[in-house]
Design a protein around this nucleic acid. Structure first.
Lengths: 172, 172
DNA sequence: TTTTTGAATAATGTAACAACATTCAAAAGG
DNA sequence: CCTTTTGAATGTTGTTACATTATTCAAAAA
């Protein structure tokens, strides 16, 4: 074929037409986490739409813009990653606080355990969850269930306060 | 100074002494997500230690090995990212199922709404959460609160079943 | 024996590159 | 004059390459 050459002013792929709509940069990732990272950046795996109580216009297409916003559970529930841990709740002594047997408790060790907070305490090597009550110079650990009695609390060898429960994850 | 040269058999940095304990590879990441990705891979932000009810040996140092394992909330609670959304619960009609006013509900639209499942239904443009009961060829939406009556359910113009509630996140 | 020092080697952030994708307009065809 | 074909022009992308840094070891010095 003969050439069809010549100037092509303004030709070429336009900027910003990539998959993400923004520039990318190579970042070194440990191989075991590459899959997870790619899912996060490519499929916005961690951003799940949040709806209120009205059926939104775009419903039920989560691919559309999320009028009510999106939510990342890790960021939402874990404010201080290095100070946070989970504990599996046992028993029904805190049923009144919405804590059921088997629930996953999100515990933040960086929060101050003030009066009224639900806390994780170890007693004789066992972790337990109770509500902290401070009154008249004394401190009590009170269950949220009338079947159980309050416990007088003071830090000692085998009793330690580990953190404040911020969220309860209940599976159905 | 004179040279101190000569063979150095076995010298050099040993393999596997990198920050992650495993090889890395460059992966192209959109610039706005680089911070988030680096936090994830470097500080294992999303991997929070999970403890049972015994005080573990390494406690309270989350930097140590997690005898009870680690947990990533997104992976744990969101099985099908593209079919999942969140709804904020209103009212106390499902208090018996552990669902309180203001709780965050994780809803999976890919699960089958079988008898006994807690489901999200829209009625007249409003989202509501109820337990599905199927019996004698009929389907009911039953609140988990004796103060509320069951509702006869059948899909029609203004009534639609949106998904199955898999988890309830309750804030304290 | 202990300390100093540079060789040896791996890790790491980023530039560079080759392969691919996309768009435009000149040339060809009608 | 309008439509189709085609290669130039340019951006994107996964991966390689590389210069710099970090780490360890043992020969040489003290």
């Amino acid at each position: 074929m003969t050439s069809r050459g010549g100037k092509r002013m303004g030709a070429g792929r336009p900027k910003g037409t990539n998959h993400y709509g923004e520039p990318t940069k190579p970042v070194r990732i440990p191989v075991s986490k590459i899959d997870r990272v790619l899912r996060f950046v490519r499929e916005r795996e961690d951003m799940v739409p949040l709806y209120g109580n009205e059926v939104p216009a775009g419903f039920p297409s989560p691919a559309d813009d999320y009028a009510e916003g999106v939510l990342d559970l890790n960021t939402h529930l874990v404010r201080e990653p290095t100070a946070t841990f989970f504990v599996r709740a046992r028993g029904d002594s805190m049923i009144g606080a919405g804590i059921h047997d088997g629930d996953l408790l999100v515990v933040d060790r960086s929060l101050e355990a003030t009066n009224g907070k639900v806390v994780i305490v170890s007693i004789n090597g066992e972790l337990t969850v109770k509500r902290l009550r401070k009154a008249k110079g004394r401190t009590w650990l009170t269950p949220e269930n009338p079947d159980y009695p309050p416990i007088d609390f003071h830090e000692q060898d085998d009793t330690h306060l580990w953190g404040v429960v911020t969220n309860v994850v209940h599976s159905l």
